[in-house]
Computed example of a mutant assay.
Amino acid sequence: MKLDKFDREILRVLQKDATVSMAELSQRVGLSHTPCWRRVKKLESDGIIRRKVTLLDNKRLNLGVNVFIYVTLKNHDEESLNSFEASVQDIPEVVECHTTSGEKDYLLKVVVESIEEYELLLKSKLTHLPSVDHLSSTFALKQVKNTTELPIKQC
């Protein structure tokens, strides 16, 4: 789908605040209410806007430990990959899972309350994931940037 300047501006505004009213959104992007509403509905039906969410503050929820884990698998056949990926879905502390290029197969992001909780998760679940050969954990010391906004270019 080709996006014009209005579509891009709608996306920029909604990324910052998905609770903005349609009246305010249309005013900010320079469209009347109905054309703006139609564009939002089209962006949703085309899958560009996947969903609207509420972002939580992990530190205020006592979930201040972020761990990045590189995973290397023993086997790389389709069944092993699918089994690993399905199993990761069942671990709520794993908030992201990416396949990667290079020596490592996956990169996981885990969010937990403490290092002790991570150690328990590691021993009880992560090392038991299907086909895992090696896990390499790195603890984030400080989050320098945190954005959910994609870099939408101007037309």
Results as ranks from 00 to 15, higher is better:
Lys2Thr: 02
Phe6Pro: 00
Phe6Glu: 05
Asp7Cys: 02
Arg12Met: 10
Ala18Ser: 15
Thr19Leu: 11
Ser21Pro: 03
Ser21Ala: 09
Met22Phe: 15
Ala23Lys: 14
Ser26Gly: 05
Gln27Leu: 14
Gln27Tyr: 14
Arg28Asp: 02
Leu31Thr: 04
Ser32Phe: 08
Thr34Ala: 14
Arg39His: 04
Val40Met: 13
Lys42Asn: 03
Glu44Met: 14
Ser45Gly: 04
Asp46Ala: 11
Gly47Glu: 06
Gly47Arg: 05
Ile48Arg: 03
Arg50Leu: 14
Thr54Glu: 10
Thr54Ile: 15
Leu56Gly: 03
Asp57Val: 06
Leu63Asn: 01
Val65Gly: 03
Asn66Tyr: 10
Val67Tyr: 13
Lys74Glu: 10
Lys74Cys: 02
Asn75Cys: 11
Asp77Thr: 04
Glu78Asn: 04
Phe84Gln: 00
Phe84Arg: 05
Glu85Arg: 07
Ser87Arg: 12
Val95Cys: 07
Cys97Gln: 05
Thr100Cys: 13
Glu103Lys: 15
Glu103Trp: 10
Glu103Thr: 06
Asp105Phe: 13
Tyr106Ile: 00
Lys109Gly: 00
Lys109Glu: 05
Val110Ala: 03
Val111Asp: 06
Ser114Ile: 03
Ile115Cys: 00
Ile115Phe: 10
Glu117Ile: 04
Leu120Gln: 10
His134Pro: 00
Phe139Gln: 00
Ala140Pro: 00
Leu141Thr: 01
Glu149Trp: 08
Leu150Gln: 08
Gln154Cys: 06
Gln154Glu: 13
